[in-house]
Design a protein around this nucleic acid. Structure first.
Length: 153
DNA sequence: GCCAACGTTGGC
DNA sequence: GCCAACGTTGGC
């Protein structure tokens, strides 16, 4: 099993929205970065666990956990003319962009804020989210990082 | 709202 | 292939 971190702006889609979604599951659409897509399409397997990160908000950080409930399939929003995420270069016979399904597992009693993660930088030296200027919305998480951060909650 | 960092685009 | 211009991300 692998571990991941996925960012979402809570004003757009929060962990509470995931919990409230039908079957507590959503298609993680709108990823339009090749590196992030490759992690989703080539790396994510059913059962992988995911830190749900809130970005662009008052207290950025990890708010809970989800799991991958369906492996990659084409992102329908890329085919929809007029959609915010429409991309004419993605075609049904040769999709450029993919989604995975993410299912709610639990919300942390207390979020692990970015500030807290930074305070533990020495214990999380490889963590991509702590790298200066890193904007990737999907990043791998090591077993050590997964255990360490869970122990903070 | 600001702005640094980054990815993409397109002219050459 | 280079690189300036541009758009986006996301912390602050």
């Amino acid at each position: 099993m692998n571990y991941w971190l996925m960012k979402s702006e809570p004003d757009v889609f929060s962990i509470d929205d995931l919990k409230a979604a039908p079957r507590r599951t959503t298609a993680w659409d709108g990823v339009r970065n090749y590196q992030a897509r490759n992690f989703m399409r080539d790396g994510m397997k059913r059962g992988d666990q995911v830190f749900f990160y809130h970005s662009n908000c008052d207290v950025p950080g990890i708010y809970g956990i989800g799991r991958i409930s369906a492996e990659a399939y084409p992102d329908e929003t890329a085919f929809q003319r007029g959609h915010d995420h429409y991309d004419p270069k993605s075609r049904r016979d040769a999709p450029t962009w993919y989604v995975v399904d993410v299912t709610f597992v639990r919300k942390f009693a207390r979020a692990v804020s970015l500030e807290t993660l930074k305070q533990h930088h020495a214990d999380l030296p490889e963590m991509l989210i702590l790298r200066r200027g890193n904007r990737l919305s999907v990043t791998p998480i090591s077993e050590h990082e997964w255990q360490f951060i869970n122990a903070l909650t």
